[in-house]
Nucleic acid binder design. Structure first.
Lengths: 210, 210
DNA sequence: TAGATTGTTAATCGATTAACAATC
DNA sequence: TAGATTGTTAATCGATTAACAATC
């Protein structure tokens, strides 16, 4: 177990290493190098070595890394060995897609609850789960022991949903709403803003053509 | 027009400023400060001032920024004043959601084409567009003059789709597939990995409980 | 032994924070 | 004039890159 604090940039790259290691495993590679890992995860060999050595010394000089062992260790550092329960708020097109996303189960995440404010949607069954009304959110989180909430609502209700999730006791929130959220310091927020990503592409596109 | 190169971290924050300024405009604010903008966009006043001053001097000391004017200028820097045409490859649940996402049109992005490899999906009409087979991708991009491609396919086909988009001539790619993509240096790639975001939340969740 | 590759240190680079003079 | 707030500089901090000794 690492004693030093792991830098946030390193943590952000760990999931890519797990993915790359799984791909290598599927390809039948028993051993790999920082060079091959960098190639597969989109970073440089130097960064790979620095990141991995900040977690512990799991490679062998002159040889490389044991793929299966390293995958297990990095997944353990990320906390992917435990199942995590996730509640999705907002069951529009995006919420639907998230509720059914196969990439979650592979990584130990289970969607255990769906919530929507629209009475026409409440009660419908999506991905085997009956959609609950917002007033049942706290009870749902408590009953399922969910620790992560996903916000897939319009931006206008995002802060309200966020407050409800925090009050219900989740420790982490992933939001797709294009709006900054206020949360107490002990709650962790990650934001995905698809339109913002396109805007950044547009910036470079504009530069390229200028 | 700014002469100096704009730092990537600044570019990444610009869309949030545009959003915050639009919210302020909707609230009827004519003028704002770096403090209020920071609050709304999730950064500090110092960062706001530094970012904005790297684009030009658009504030007035002792007074603040003109909301409408600043919004227009930042949007112009991002290149949001021109309509951008977007092609979505992979029309599963996520592709469906993207094709219909209202947040795109608001920011000047129009989905002009849909492509899927599944013969059962090809020909179906989603969001007013007939889904095309992969072999029509190049023609589709050429005909619509699309400059941005979105990859919403399984990870296994992501690189192949990426190569086809590059060959078809798009300048920017937004991928949702959890896999590093190889592209020529003149093509810009942004990656959104939802499972990775959850994994990062899981890391902090684990620390919190440890 | 010779070649390969890690783990780590030092050097470079860039981003954030703090502070304040300029100026409305 | 006094108070407010920008634009900018300097100081701090953290991340990346380069290089190489350790070692398999």
């Amino acid at each position: 177990m690492p004693v030093r604090e792991i830098p946030p940039t390193t943590v952000a790259r760990l999931p890519a290493y797990v993915g790359a290691l799984e791909a290598l495993l599927a390809d039948g590679c028993a051993t790999t190098s920082s060079e091959a890992l960098g190639e597969r995860s989109g970073t440089s060999p130097a960064v790979v070595r620095k990141d991995l050595s900040s977690l512990g010394q799991w490679g062998r000089r002159g040889v490389g890394y044991d793929v299966a062992h390293l995958r297990e260790r990095v997944a353990a550092v990320l906390g992917l060995t435990t199942q995590r329960r996730v509640v999705v708020v907002g069951v529009g097109h995006l919420g639907h897609a998230l509720a059914r996303y196969p990439g979650f189960a592979d990584r130990g995440f289970t969607v255990v609850g769906l919530v929507d404010a629209d009475p026409a949607v409440v009660g419908s069954v999506v991905a085997g789960l009956a959609v609950q009304p917002p007033e049942r959110l706290a009870e749902l989180v408590a009953r399922t022991a969910a620790t992560i909430g996903i916000i897939a609502t319009p931006a206008t209700s995002a802060q309200q949903v966020c407050d409800a999730l925090v009050a219900a006791g989740v420790g982490g929130i992933l939001t797709f709403a294009p709006r900054a959220l206020r949360v107490p310091p002990e709650v962790d927020v990650r934001a995905v803003d698809v339109a913002a990503e396109l805007a950044i592409l547009a910036f470079h596109d504009r530069r390229r053509r200028a």
